[in-house]
Design a protein around this nucleic acid. Structure first.
Length: 124
RNA sequence: UGAGUAAUCUGAACGGUCGCGGCAGUAUUUUUAUACUGAUGAGGAAAGUCCGAGCUUCGCAGGACAGGAUGCCGGAGAAAUCCCGGUGGAGGCGACUCUAAGGAAAGUGCAACAGAAAUAAACCGCCUGCCUCAGCAGGUAAGGGUGGAAAGGCGGGGUAAGAGCCCACCGACAUUGCGGUAACGCUUUGUGCCAUGUAAACCCCAUCCGAAGCAACGCCGACUGGAUUGGUCUGUCCGACCUAUAAUCCGAAGGGCGGCUGGAGCCAUGUAGAGAUAUAUGGCGUAGAUAGAUGACCGUUUUUAAUGACAGAACUCGGCUUACAGGAUUACUCAUACA
RNA sequence: CGGGAUAUAGCGCAGUUUGGUAGCGCGCUUCGUUCGGGACGAAGAGGCCGCAGGUUCAAAUCCUGUUAUCCCGA
């Protein structure tokens, strides 16, 4: 684990904050659908990745939404081998409510590798 | 031991690795920022937004109408549909629980269907008179049936038949005395009792209320923003252009800062009180984000169970309501057994 | 976060103000009409009025709580 962390460039997760960015991704970005989540992605001009997480109120009350968002963020943080320069939005679906940490991670990894952002799928 | 009533407390703790928010310090750096260190970072309901208040803006000489809220009595409190104690009523064998509980003799409205009749009354019946009967006229609210509600209930006397027409008891209304701060309670005497329910229908009476809400609001402000004054073209007006160097005003960003957390605060002990609560002393005073911070993995301990019941601060407080796995404590009631 | 509104038949809506009988259109079923279908005509079924308490003789309607859905405010 120590080596891996040394290799991993410690970059903060910059988040997408503006509504127009989300709308642009929904209309013009590409999408990958899995059972528990959906990914929208598109190239940006910043040279680093930006992450947005959408958990609608359809999924549950505030406690459940917070937990889903934290699990998604933690899974994204543990990923390695991401190529830079993408806007990524993760949308949670209703099946995610009872899912465990590993199941969410499996879905996220397969979705990102299909989109081409995740180049080397290292199983940690 | 079983069944139950009421009240209160709790809502796991510690450690390791990685990671996050704001705060303080140090170092680098023009600033932004980056790195390291330190302590710190989610509830009993944070929820619902049902009441009340602080705070802010707008409006306002004063008053009235409209509209809204509250409604037994006393107290506590900043205030409240909250809280405490009591009174009346309803439920329960009981501990105890519930109670929007003023006025129907100020007025208006409504009371479907059924029933003769619904606030004004004789359908059947009973009795009297005319009378062979049928029928007609009168008396009568005992009985029938309808309905949520039908002239206070029941028993006796009385009567042509009946009727508070008369009497006893209960109820109702008025009233005397005593107790209580009061609501009201107990009691004395009288009235035969000319009229049901509904005010969570309009309404009347008494008390109170300006409206909106931190996405309130204040300050700074890019935009080389707009307007006027200004300068040039001109003899003058219109019009066009120029300037941001001169002044004033206005608008204003998916902007920034403030508002933003010490407040009618919490805990312990003493005193006053029946209690809510008040007061004195001591202690604690440790979220403040702005697309939004508490997560992932693992170990140990306690436990029936720790994989998690209900559930996430968004200006802040006081209450109410609703949701809740499991556990603990106290007081009391009933039944059974024993003494 | 704050401020509002609505839940009635399979679908879309009245009725709630002023309490008593729950209705309209489309759809569904059956019958008639037609050689057959459509259209048309006749008959019928289908509702705890979102849920739970209360006021009342009586609640879709009045009051209180609660659950969903929708709208508005940067």
């Amino acid at each position: 684990m120590g080596k891996a962390h040394a290799l991993c460039v410690k970059m903060k997760i910059t988040s997408i904050s503006e509504n127009s960015d989300f709308k642009r991704l929904y209309y013009r970005g590409k999408s990958v659908v899995r059972k528990r989540l959906v990914i929208y992605y598109r190239k940006n001009r910043y040279g680093y990745n930006r992450l947005g997480i959408t958990v609608s109120s359809k999924i549950g009350c505030a406690v459940i939404r917070n937990r889903v968002r934290r699990l998604l963020r933690e899974n994204y943080r543990n990923l390695q081998g991401l190529s830079d320069g993408f806007d990524i939005v993760i949308v949670a679906r209703t099946q995610i409510v009872n899912a465990r940490f590993d199941e969410i991670g499996k879905d996220l990894r397969s979705a990102l590798s299909e989109s081409g952002i995740l180049k080397e799928d290292k199983l940690v």
